[in-house]
Structures are given as C-alpha cells and as structure tokens.
C-alpha cells in the first residue's frame, strides 16, 4: 500500500511498477492512472471521475452559467483544473476567470480581488488544504458573496479547523465521508472512534477500503500472487453484499480507477453536512 499524496505517489509508482507489486494509493491526480501502469489502484476518485460528477452538480444543482476557477499550480491542482474546464466546456458553462495560485501561497488578497471582479455565478476552488483555508479566510475578509464549491479537499476537517467560520456555506463534492448517509459507513466511523479514540477522516476509509479490496481480490485469486492480483482486480465490482467491510459498492476499471456513489456536502456551523448524493458514473 502506498502514499496518499499525489506527489509521493508518482515517485513510488515507478519503483513498484518495476517490482511488479500492485500498489493501492489514495492520491487524486489524474496522471497516476494514465501512465499505463497495470499495478496501480486507487481508493479515492481520480479527478477525471469526480469532475464529471461535480460538473453535473454545477449545472443541475447550482444552476450556474458562469464559473470562476481558483486552482493550485501543481500536479494535483492542474489536473483537477484541466478536467473541470473540459467538463464545463461540454456543458456550455462559461469559465470567466481562471486563476492559478502557488502551492504554499500565503497571501490570497490579489486572487480574491480578481475573483470578485469576474462576477461569476459560482467559484470553484481546487487547492490543497492549507491554501484552501487561507483562501476562504481572505474571501470572507473581502466579503465574497458568490457561492464557493470545491472538491473533497475544500471540506476537509483540516480546512474547517484552519478557516474557522470563514468556511460556513461552502459546498463541496465529497467522494467519501464518515458522515455518509449509509449505515455501514456510520458504524465503521463509530468503531474507528472507539478503537483509536479519535475521529476518522476520509483517509481512514481509504486505508480501510484498500485493506478489504486486497482481501477480497486475494480471496478470489486464492493465493498471494501479485501478478494474478493485478489481472483480477481490473474491472472488478465489489458490493457490500459480497464483502460487508467494503462499506459501499465500488468498481475498479481497467486503469485502476475507482467508481462509486458520492455526496455533496455543505459547511454549516463549522461542520460538514451531507446535503445530496451523486450517483455512480457507471462504466464509460
């Protein structure tokens, strides 16, 4: 099993591919599964899966005609931004501002001024956790009224902690959450809390999913064989009926990307609340 952050994923990937060991990762950069590496699997959505879902929401849920994008200029942010812009194009939603920010950027005043100037129906923010928090603080400071929507990261606990009440009202796509209105997930979160004495975040579920993904596939293969594992795992669908601990029905496609139900969350009073469900995209 491998790292969660996209950057570290990229480097370790080369090594595990050479060693022919399947690697299960939590990173979200689209490029990870686009390198024809047959040994890499995700437990969280790649941006090329989550973006169409989110774009559907922007069109149908938020009914926006114009969007402004704020993204972080690294492999994570650029991937998400490119995918999002593409999805906006196919849905005839106009991108009126396209603002790149630096990883580790501290001062967002200039970016927020530009966002305000763009006058979009909706702001899409795709930055890392700390920068998201700094951005939200600055947006509140400058009195931005436009709804802000983002990916899982934007609603992460870390962002909520750092941004404080500046995060209220922000909506985001939640690929995976312990607050999901699904019983299996809820009971998992409770058990996790009891056992480790702290609240689980989505990375906890990623790890858990990875574990049972491996267990399930290995059982099907019948032995520990990394090559056979890799072959079997592509295109597999695991439902909670077959493997209760997988928590939710999930499909891995030929690239090792995962597809499953996901949610729309909103920050209310400093807490993330699930306000909607987005269906599985299905096989493309």
């Amino acid at each position: 099993m491998g790292p969660v952050f996209s950057g570290s994923v990229m480097t370790s990937m080369l090594l595990t591919q050479a060693a022919e060991i399947p690697q299960i990762v939590g990173g979200e950069a689209p490029a990870i599964t686009q390198k024809n590496n047959p040994y890499v699997f995700r437990t969280s959505f790649g941006a090329q899966f989550s973006m169409p879902k989110l774009a559907n929401y922007v069109r149908d849920g938020a009914k926006a005609k114009t969007v402004a994008i704020l993204w972080v200029n690294n492999d994570f942010g650029k991937g998400g931004r490119d995918a999002f812009v593409k999805e906006m194009g196919t849905r005839n939603i106009k991108v009126v501002a396209d603002i790149s920010t630096e990883a580790g950027q501290a001062d967002f005043s200039a970016d927020v001024v530009k966002l305000k100037g763009a006058n979009a129906d909706l702001i899409f923010a795709y930055t890392n956790e700390e920068e998201s928090a700094r951005f939200l603080r600055e947006a509140k400071k400058q009195g931005v009224k436009t709804p802000i929507v983002g990916e899982t990261t934007l609603l992460g606990q870390k962002v909520l902690d750092l941004a404080g009440d500046a995060a209220n009202g922000v909506k985001g796509h939640v690929g995976l959450t312990i607050d999901a209105p699904i019983d299996a997930v809820k009971s998992f979160a409770e058990r996790f809390k009891k056992r480790f004495n702290y609240a689980c975040d989505h990375n906890g579920i990623k790890g858990y999913t990875a574990l049972y993904f491996v267990k399930h596939v290995t059982e099907k293969v019948g032995k520990f064989d990394s090559k056979a594992f890799a072959e079997k795992a592509h295109g597999i669908t695991i439902t909670p009926k077959d493997e209760p601990n997988i928590l939710m029905e999930a499909t891995w496609d030929k690239n090792g990307d995962i597809d499953r139900e996901s949610f729309i969350g909103e920050v209310v009073g400093g807490k993330q609340k699930i306000v909607g469900t987005l269906p599985k995209l299905g096989t493309k």
């Binding site: 490029a31 200029n73 690294n74 492999d75 650029k78 991937g79």
Partner: peptide
C-alpha cells in the same frame, strides 16, 4: 511549469 506548450507544464 507555466509554458505548457513547450515543456509539458507541471506534468
């Protein structure tokens, strides 16, 4: 990083 047409950008 920024001149994607030439260097492939961040990827």
């Amino acid at each position: 990083r920024n001149e994607e047409w030439l260097t492939g950008g961040i990827y």
